[in-house]
Design a protein around this nucleic acid. Sequence first.
DNA 1: GCCCTTATTGATACAATATATCATTTCGAT
DNA 2: ATCGAAATGATATATTGTATCAATAAGGGC
Lengths: 173, 173
Amino acid sequence: MSDTVPMRRAAQRPDAESQLRALERLETECRVRGCRLTRQRRAVLRALLAEGGALSAYELLERLRRVDSRCTPAGVYRALEFWMTAGVVHRLQSTRSFILCEHPEAPHPGQLLICRECGQVIEAEDKGVVAAAIRLGERLGFVLDRHLVELTGVCGPCRAQGRAGDSGRSPTT
Amino acid sequence: MSDTVPMRRAAQRPDAESQLRALERLETECRVRGCRLTRQRRAVLRALLAEGGALSAYELLERLRRVDSRCTPAGVYRALEFWMTAGVVHRLQSTRSFILCEHPEAPHPGQLLICRECGQVIEAEDKGVVAAAIRLGERLGFVLDRHLVELTGVCGPCRAQGRAGDSGRSPTT
DNA sequence: GCCCTTATTGATACAATATATCATTTCGAT
DNA sequence: ATCGAAATGATATATTGTATCAATAAGGGC
Ligand SMILES: [Zn+2]
Ligand SMILES: [Zn+2]
Ligand SMILES: [Zn+2]
Ligand SMILES: [Zn+2]
């Protein structure tokens, strides 16, 4: 517990099992769509599963290289791109990192809640937020096709642990 | 109209005038808070005003160098950091760029709507979106202090011009 | 299994974005 | 005029993300 790196509630994500099942489904899905479920792509997915949270592309690269020293940034980004297109991985713009989708069954607009203390990321699919966003788009004449909603704050457990921070100020972009 | 670069509805932003007035206010504000409204910081603000839209840090650097060749990336980032803290500039995570706040009177959680055709960015302060986000946070036990909401799509004028794109698919992260 | 087509990778180089450090300068107050 | 805090200039470097193209490997038809 006296690690120098910020603690990370690892492997706490809902269901590694069901995600592996989802992976099976992807395998067939891929074949249908004419793209390939390759070693490297599996490796990226496995690394993200093992981490149980978000990883930057280069953190991912480091892990992959432990197994296969020939991995390159380009390869990692290509695999990530592939999975993002498939809706299996999301990119966290506010932390420049990547995380497994928790509902990879179907593409969906999601919201990512990030705890600035423990780094935990929770993915939500909140109808209210999406509806409000779409209404806003309509009001301003936009037809939206990409929702980026990342909400940063402090999660319950971290507040309970006393690491409250100054939660007094109003939410800002 | 046969330009190779994507058109940009420049200088269409609401009110360059009132933003300059807001700048005056900042000047005094700064003095109170013990920070300085310097040449470089003004330059960054002027460049963003002149552009009338979003600029990347290095696009900004290029413009500043036309006037003062000693500008450096660090300087630009420092000035941007300063203005972001002051709530005068927002960072667009999805395009790695920076844009003037349209309501710099007070800090606020905002939503940025980005047209993928013309690059136009509209800033909104939609109570509905903010309320939904806060409710979502509460539901998941988070106390939020930073809202990142960037909605990408096609604006009205661009759709009217026929550049509709495939607007059939559902919004995704 | 073997061949063929094509998606994917490996290797390398490079582009774009962002920060660290520290001596020097500037600003504003005394 | 002098002093101290804040900001800049200059330089180097870290981090993040792409381009290119020859070599490879995956999957489908035989
Ligand atoms: Zn998801
Ligand atoms: Zn936490
Ligand atoms: Zn604003
Ligand atoms: Zn447009």
